[in-house]
Amino acid sequence: MTTLSQQRRQRVNLTGWSGRAIAGVVLLVFVLFFAIPIVWLLFAVTKSSKALILDNPFALGSWADFTANWNQLFGFQDGAVTTWIGNSALYAVGALVITLVVSIPAGYALALTEFRLRNALLVLTLVVMLIPSTALVLPIFLELNTVGLIGSPLSVILPMSFFPFGVYLTYIYFSTSVPRDLLSAARIDGCSEFQVFTRIALPLAAPIVALVAFFNFVQSWNNFFLPFVMLPSSDGYPIQVGLTSLLASTPAFNPSSAGSDSVQLPTLALATVVSILPVLFVFLFSQRFLVSGMTAGGTKE
């Protein structure tokens, strides 16, 4: 027994310190890789465009430069950025509300009731869930174009509300985590089927409602291709698409744009930060339950 454990310790030590050193280096390199761009971005918004190029990348600029960048960003095309953020909020929140109203009952029905074509709908949900959402963007455009919905907020809100992944998460939750005896007991006590859902199942499903809300909100807010295709006019852009207008007005990347309404590099950096703030907040505050949710059923990008 002692020889065995000695032998074991020796072997572990052999791969031990050199292996650990390599592992440590790998971890560190990737920490730098993932973190440096974000950290740099936060410093960049506090600098003037000259300081951005000449100063140490990780030196703090000044408050005055930050406000100058802020004013330039929100003064761009008479406050277009504010409109875009408002649009993003409208689309993401609108899609979120419809998604919840549609997906939670659907997941419940798939898990706990019986109806014709239930299996077909379940398989269809899985298949569509695994298709990248961008694959359907042009087909949906062609479809909505014939109905004349292009340019309307509905042309992005409705497709964003079709969220099979949310239905699937809800379905998994209801079929594995809700005690059936509880539902039967409610039925015996005289609850109608509708009341079983609203009074018993729905309160139990609060965590999954939050999870579906999170994934849908992040996906809608970050969506680029769909609004880019559906919304031709700048008034209707969400902020993600608005960024392309800002980019087009940045002389550093597009020399032909040097004019009165041009955007400097730190302002463009600030726009990037502003465009992700809501999602970043949601990420920071929901980290823990998010991780458990992602590992519960796998996820789609």
């Binding site: 109203v101 549609v102 019986e114 109806f115 409705l158 099979p164 089927e193 859902f197």
Partner: peptide, 20 residues
């Protein structure tokens, strides 16, 4: 087969048809 199943799944089925 209960009617509630059809009711609950109807909106989702509609979106699946319309956007899938």
């Amino acid at each position: 087969r209960t009617r509630i199943g059809y009711l609950f799944v109807s909106l989702y089925a509609f979106l699946t048809l319309a956007f899938g």
